[in-house]
Design a protein around this nucleic acid. Sequence first.
DNA 1: CATACACTTTTTGCCTTCAAAATCGCCAAT
DNA 2: ATTGGCGATTTTGAAGGCAAAAAGTGTATG
Lengths: 235, 235
Amino acid sequence: MSGKRNLIRSGTTVDQMVRAISDRIVTGFLRPGEKLDEASLAARFDVSRTPIREALSRLSAMGLVERRPNRGATVAVVTQEHLASMFESMAELEAICARFSAERMTAGERRTLEAEHQASARLVQLGAEEEYELFNTQFHTRLYRGAHSKHIYELTVMTRGRLAPFRRAQFMLPGRLAQSWQEHDAIVTAIMRGDSTAAGIAAKDHVSIVSEASAVFAIGDRPKGKAEPVPTSAS
Amino acid sequence: MSGKRNLIRSGTTVDQMVRAISDRIVTGFLRPGEKLDEASLAARFDVSRTPIREALSRLSAMGLVERRPNRGATVAVVTQEHLASMFESMAELEAICARFSAERMTAGERRTLEAEHQASARLVQLGAEEEYELFNTQFHTRLYRGAHSKHIYELTVMTRGRLAPFRRAQFMLPGRLAQSWQEHDAIVTAIMRGDSTAAGIAAKDHVSIVSEASAVFAIGDRPKGKAEPVPTSAS
DNA sequence: CATACACTTTTTGCCTTCAAAATCGCCAAT
DNA sequence: ATTGGCGATTTTGAAGGCAAAAAGTGTATG
């Protein structure tokens, strides 16, 4: 068993395993609390246990799986409380970024932020959800960078990454694009004015609304009954 | 070469390696930017490369080392800007914890916080720096827990961990104990009143002062010239 | 004299194998 | 009948080896 691992795309094997496993976790194929057997995963993806092990390590650092010494790894159980806590943290972090951005962004950064934001209005009119989602990510990243604080940036990006699985469907709600744009507008306006307080409040509200929209997707209360260990059917 | 690794104490081999390497990093034995060769480290600690590799992985997640694919690991370079950014983040995080604590702490939590705080006054009078340092950690942990937000707790503890190497000598300044107690008192008083705004401000100021006290210990501007690969003196 | 190419050396990434710890099942004793 | 201890199985932790990628070095050529 060796030589063909053309299933998933580029990067080092560990990266592929991280992507593959995290995909299966966020799509619900692997259930929270489910045991992640190294040997099974290695057989499933046709690699040795070593990259699986390192991938589990990274996923553990990302908060997607939990590892206990000598007891293996399990898919992290995210309770509704914890999910709420993450959204709450996200709101606070975004507020900090917005406040700092209002105070610290250079003239150039403010220009591009505003320009891109205005340009995104077209995506809203067209209802281009995919593209708007892409822009949205860029917009927020710009905000995080504008804070000019590397560690805040790291914390924020990390939290956003952990939250990613739960905010997938947020833009499926009707009118969400327009509302999102309005909220962005409040943030941008405050930042352009240099009003850090208003920017912080606007950013916090923005996340809070996303939070409420995503709350219904909390895991742990899904009605599915069966709990297969690791569906290793097709080799 | 096998069988004797009684140098460092309990835990799995990876844990020992994480401790050993992080110790050498925070004590400055391994310089920022220095290359961490897996083979050398394995030989140095008389273990195989596998646990070294996983230890480096964890240290990378902790932010102490940087890893680039196919290019090995180096001791993370913490610039003064980044250090300032971490202290700044810490101040914001502590402020959030204090605000939330003021709003959410149970009656029991408030009682013990106040009681322990009052008890610590004795340590200040005695000038018991070691014990006060221990209490100080507990005090802040209580604050983080009082926020009743698991993710905020995680972010805060993580940031505190990264900052630990740089705040070692903060209590060596004269009168620092008394000043610390006064600042704690402001936080506790605000929390007992349920005044989240005041608690947040007091907590932020508290960290800011610690930050200034620790600023002189920033690395990256040390005059030492020589840069040995891995100083393998005492076994 | 500088630059580019090829070769050597070093270092990383992955695999396979071996040992130790934990879990599970079974049997016996109360 | 239940509970405690003991052995077999499963699963994780670690070691050593091999191949590939990057870094370093020297030479040849413009």
